[in-house]
């Protein structure tokens, strides 16, 4: 058993399962709502990548910041945002976590220091640097978790941000979700050092490593070390989590550019099934217990959909609200 597993009590280990199940079911239901035309715009599903959000975010403190990309439902839910307010945001309702003004790609929650999902590839990177700068300037005990895709590595802003984080030794963890594709572009075709992505930060003297992003306990273990080190003033860190998205880039993508063999290879490593297997094999939870958890999550998501359906649209006046603090 991994040290991370040994250090965790039954409740925490089972909770990873509950959380990943929630992320999975939430998105499966969100996809259905998209097909029914109730969720519009781009809807980027995180299905297949749940272990990263669950494992990584479990290592943060409430005061820590998260800035992420547009594939953000999983990160928001793992941070503890109520599925109701996330679903309501997908529905564009006033009860949504961004009051219906952001949508799926732009989830925000100030009360959880969830500083936003950002839909311009790489845009969140300097914002995370700035959050780190603020924490360091104000001598606050905060770590910034900045989540990015493999596609962001190719933006100039990525390099600008690594350099700034490094020269100022800021408390930022850059967590790269390498799902092997940016839309339809395989990393190995668009990125020169695709086999060792995590080494991209070496010229900036930022320490880095790679972790199996399909294994929640591996992510948890790696992130515990990383977050501890960054919190203790070790400067920024870059962690690459290897993963795979089981669905298309967004609901609009029929995903025709990946081979069946490749998909099957990764499906076998489904993080939710894997953790379930772990719990059962080690006698940490029974089939019945996990079944009950699954049902609970289903009900929670159904309730979230009901809440979103029944919630009102933003009032017409909201069109001009919140543009300026002081108009």
């Amino acid at each position: 058993m991994k040290p991370a597993a040994q250090a965790l009590d039954k409740r925490s280990l089972v909770d990873f399962y509950r959380q990943m199940r929630l992320l999975r079911i939430f998105e499966e239901r969100a996809a259905e709502q998209y097909m029914r035309g109730r969720v519009r715009g781009f809807l980027h599903l995180y299905i297949g990548e749940e272990a990263i959000a669950a494992g990584a975010i479990s290592t943060l403190e409430p005061q820590d910041y998260i800035a992420t990309h547009y594939r953000d439902h999983g990160h928001a839910l793992a941070r503890g945002l109520d599925p109701k307010v996330v679903m309501a945001e997908l529905f564009g309702k006033v009860t949504g976590c961004s009051k219906g003004m952001g949508g799926s790609m732009h989830l925000f929650d100030a009360s959880r220091n969830f500083m936003g999902g950002y839909a311009i590839v790489g845009g969140q990177l300097p914002l995370a640097v700035g959050l780190g700068l603020a924490a360091s300037y104000l001598k606050e005990n905060r770590v910034v978790l900045c989540i990015l895709g493999d596609g962001a590595l190719n933006e100039g802003e990525f390099h600008e941000s690594m350099n700034l984080a490094a020269i100022w030794r800021l408390p930022v963890v850059f967590l790269c979700e390498n799902n092997l594709y940016g839309m339809g572009s395989p990393v190995k075709e668009v990125f020169a050092a695709a086999d060792e992505i995590y080494r991209i930060v070496e010229p900036y003297h930022i320490p880095s490593s790679q972790v199996d992003g399909m294994d929640v306990l591996a992510v948890r273990e790696a992130m515990e070390g990383v977050v501890g080190r960054v919190r203790d003033g070790g400067g920024p860190y870059f962690l690459e989590a290897l993963t795979y998205r089981f669905r298309g880039h967004s609901m609009a993508d029929p995903s025709e550019y990946r081979s069946k063999e490749e998909e099957a290879f990764w499906q076998k490593r489904d993080p939710v099934a894997k953790h379930r297997q772990f719990l059962l094999a080690n006698g940490i939870a029974s089939e019945a217990e996990l079944e009950t958890i699954g049902q609970g999550v289903e009900e929670q998501v159904e309730e979230a959909i009901r809440f979103a359906e029944e919630s009102p649209d933003p009032a017409p006046e909201a069109l001009y609200e919140n543009l300026y603090a002081n108009p």
């Binding site: 500083m115 990177l125 995370a128 700035g130 924490a135 104000l138 600008e160």
Partner: peptide, 13 residues
């Protein structure tokens, strides 16, 4: 780009 983004992030912080 990173200068402005850092400024914005620090304002959020």
């Amino acid at each position: 780009s990173a200068i402005v983004g850092t400024g914005t992030g620090s304002a959020l912080g």
